[in-house]
Protein backbone atom coordinates (compact mmCIF):
# COMPACT_ATOMS: atom_id res chain seq x y z
CA UNK A 1 0.00 0.00 0.00
CA UNK A 2 1.97 2.94 -1.25
CA UNK A 3 2.25 5.30 -4.18
CA UNK A 4 4.28 4.15 -7.18
CA UNK A 5 6.39 5.87 -9.83
CA UNK A 6 5.94 4.67 -13.40
CA UNK A 7 8.22 4.59 -16.45
CA UNK A 8 7.04 8.06 -17.44
CA UNK A 9 9.37 9.47 -14.79
CA UNK A 10 11.98 11.84 -16.20
CA UNK A 11 13.98 12.08 -12.97
CA UNK A 12 13.29 15.76 -12.29
CA UNK A 13 13.57 15.13 -8.47
CA UNK A 14 10.61 17.39 -7.64
CA UNK A 15 8.74 14.58 -5.92
CA UNK A 16 11.75 13.60 -3.82
CA UNK A 17 12.19 17.20 -2.72
CA UNK A 18 8.56 17.45 -1.68
CA UNK A 19 8.12 14.08 0.01
CA UNK A 20 7.69 14.89 3.72
CA UNK A 21 9.05 11.55 4.93
CA UNK A 22 11.95 11.11 2.54
CA UNK A 23 10.48 7.99 0.99
CA UNK A 24 11.53 8.84 -2.58
CA UNK A 25 15.04 8.19 -3.85
CA UNK A 26 16.69 8.45 -7.26
CA UNK A 27 19.32 10.42 -9.15
CA UNK A 28 18.74 13.29 -11.52
CA UNK A 29 17.35 12.27 -14.94
CA UNK A 30 16.76 8.69 -13.82
CA UNK A 31 13.59 7.00 -12.74
CA UNK A 32 12.80 7.51 -9.05
CA UNK A 33 11.34 4.98 -6.65
CA UNK A 34 9.13 5.13 -3.56
CA UNK A 35 10.01 3.12 -0.45
CA UNK A 36 6.77 1.41 0.57
CA UNK A 37 8.00 1.10 4.14
CA UNK A 38 8.20 4.86 4.51
CA UNK A 39 5.38 6.15 2.28
CA UNK A 40 2.48 7.53 4.30
CA UNK A 41 0.25 8.02 1.26
CA UNK A 42 0.09 11.79 1.52
CA UNK A 43 -0.01 12.01 -2.29
CA UNK A 44 2.11 15.12 -2.64
CA UNK A 45 4.38 13.34 -5.17
CA UNK A 46 1.42 12.86 -7.48
CA UNK A 47 0.36 16.47 -7.13
CA UNK A 48 3.76 17.90 -8.05
CA UNK A 49 4.82 15.45 -10.78
CA UNK A 50 4.90 17.32 -14.12
CA UNK A 51 4.63 14.11 -16.12
CA UNK A 52 1.79 12.31 -14.36
CA UNK A 53 4.23 9.54 -13.55
CA UNK A 54 2.85 8.71 -10.11
CA UNK A 55 0.13 6.14 -9.40
CA UNK A 56 -1.88 6.09 -6.20
CA UNK A 57 -2.18 2.85 -4.14
CA UNK A 58 -5.16 1.68 -6.19
CA UNK A 59 -3.22 2.12 -9.45
CA UNK A 60 -4.88 5.31 -10.67
CA UNK A 61 -2.44 7.81 -12.21
CA UNK A 62 -2.31 11.14 -10.38
CA UNK A 63 -2.64 14.43 -12.18
CA UNK A 64 -0.74 17.59 -11.39
CA UNK A 65 -2.40 20.11 -9.13
CA UNK A 66 -0.92 23.56 -8.78
CA UNK A 67 0.00 24.64 -5.30
CA UNK A 68 -2.65 27.38 -5.23
CA UNK A 69 -5.32 24.74 -5.67
CA UNK A 70 -4.20 22.54 -2.77
CA UNK A 71 -7.00 22.39 -0.28
CA UNK A 72 -6.58 23.39 3.32
CA UNK A 73 -8.19 21.67 6.29
CA UNK A 74 -11.32 23.17 7.80
CA UNK A 75 -11.54 22.36 11.49
CA UNK A 76 -14.93 22.33 13.19
CA UNK A 77 -13.94 24.26 16.32
CA UNK A 78 -17.11 23.37 18.18
CA UNK A 79 -16.71 19.65 17.71
CA UNK A 80 -12.91 19.49 18.11
CA UNK A 81 -11.86 18.18 21.51
CA UNK A 82 -8.19 19.02 21.12
CA UNK A 83 -7.14 15.37 21.32
CA UNK A 84 -4.11 16.14 19.12
CA UNK A 85 -4.32 13.04 16.91
CA UNK A 86 -4.20 15.29 13.83
CA UNK A 87 -1.24 17.22 15.24
CA UNK A 88 0.68 13.99 15.86
CA UNK A 89 -0.07 12.67 12.37
CA UNK A 90 0.48 15.83 10.29
CA UNK A 91 3.52 15.03 8.11
CA UNK A 92 4.39 18.70 7.69
CA UNK A 93 3.90 19.66 11.35
CA UNK A 94 1.64 22.52 10.39
CA UNK A 95 -1.15 21.78 12.85
CA UNK A 96 -1.05 22.67 16.53
CA UNK A 97 -3.29 22.92 19.55
CA UNK A 98 -3.96 26.62 20.01
CA UNK A 99 -2.72 28.53 23.04
CA UNK A 100 -5.25 29.13 25.80
CA UNK A 101 -7.28 32.25 25.02
CA UNK A 102 -7.33 33.27 28.68
CA UNK A 103 -6.01 31.91 31.96
CA UNK A 104 -7.98 28.77 32.80
CA UNK A 105 -9.21 28.17 29.24
CA UNK A 106 -9.88 24.44 28.94
CA UNK A 107 -11.26 24.38 25.41
CA UNK A 108 -8.14 24.60 23.33
CA UNK A 109 -8.63 23.12 19.87
CA UNK A 110 -6.56 22.22 16.83
CA UNK A 111 -5.67 24.86 14.25
CA UNK A 112 -3.53 25.28 11.18
CA UNK A 113 -0.43 27.17 12.28
CA UNK A 114 -0.64 30.71 11.01
CA UNK A 115 2.94 30.99 9.79
CA UNK A 116 2.93 27.48 8.35
CA UNK A 117 -0.25 27.63 6.29
CA UNK A 118 1.84 27.41 3.14
CA UNK A 119 3.53 24.29 4.39
CA UNK A 120 0.23 22.36 4.34
CA UNK A 121 0.23 19.97 1.38
CA UNK A 122 -3.48 19.20 1.56
CA UNK A 123 -2.82 15.49 2.14
CA UNK A 124 -6.02 15.08 4.18
CA UNK A 125 -4.30 12.73 6.63
CA UNK A 126 -5.61 14.88 9.49
CA UNK A 127 -9.11 14.41 8.24
CA UNK A 128 -8.63 10.64 7.92
CA UNK A 129 -7.28 10.20 11.43
CA UNK A 130 -9.63 12.55 13.29
CA UNK A 131 -11.61 10.23 15.59
CA UNK A 132 -14.77 12.30 15.29
CA UNK A 133 -14.57 13.53 11.70
CA UNK A 134 -14.19 17.15 12.75
CA UNK A 135 -11.80 18.00 9.93
CA UNK A 136 -13.03 18.42 6.36
CA UNK A 137 -11.45 19.71 3.16
Amino acid sequence: MAYKITDNCIGCTICAKNCPVGAITGTLREQHAIDGGLCIECGVCGKVCPKGAVEDPSGVPCSKVTKEQWKKPIIDKDACAGCSVCVENCPKDCLEIEDPKFHGDIHTVAQLMFHKEDACIGCMICSKVCPIGAITF
Binding site: A81, G82, C83, V85, E88, P100, G104, D105, I106
Partner: peptide, 18 residues
Protein backbone atom coordinates in the same frame (compact mmCIF):
# COMPACT_ATOMS: atom_id res chain seq x y z
CA UNK B 1 -2.41 25.02 41.27
CA UNK B 2 -5.10 26.01 38.77
CA UNK B 3 -5.42 29.64 39.85
CA UNK B 4 -1.81 30.56 40.29
CA UNK B 5 0.36 28.19 38.32
CA UNK B 6 -1.31 26.09 35.65
CA UNK B 7 -0.41 27.35 32.19
CA UNK B 8 -2.70 25.08 30.20
CA UNK B 9 -4.32 21.70 30.60
CA UNK B 10 -2.90 19.04 28.34
CA UNK B 11 -3.86 15.51 27.47
CA UNK B 12 -2.30 12.30 26.30
CA UNK B 13 -2.63 11.62 22.59
CA UNK B 14 -6.30 10.87 21.61
CA UNK B 15 -7.67 12.22 24.89
CA UNK B 16 -10.60 14.63 25.02
CA UNK B 17 -10.49 14.85 28.84
CA UNK B 18 -7.06 16.47 29.11
Amino acid sequence: LAEKYNIVNKGCLTCPIK
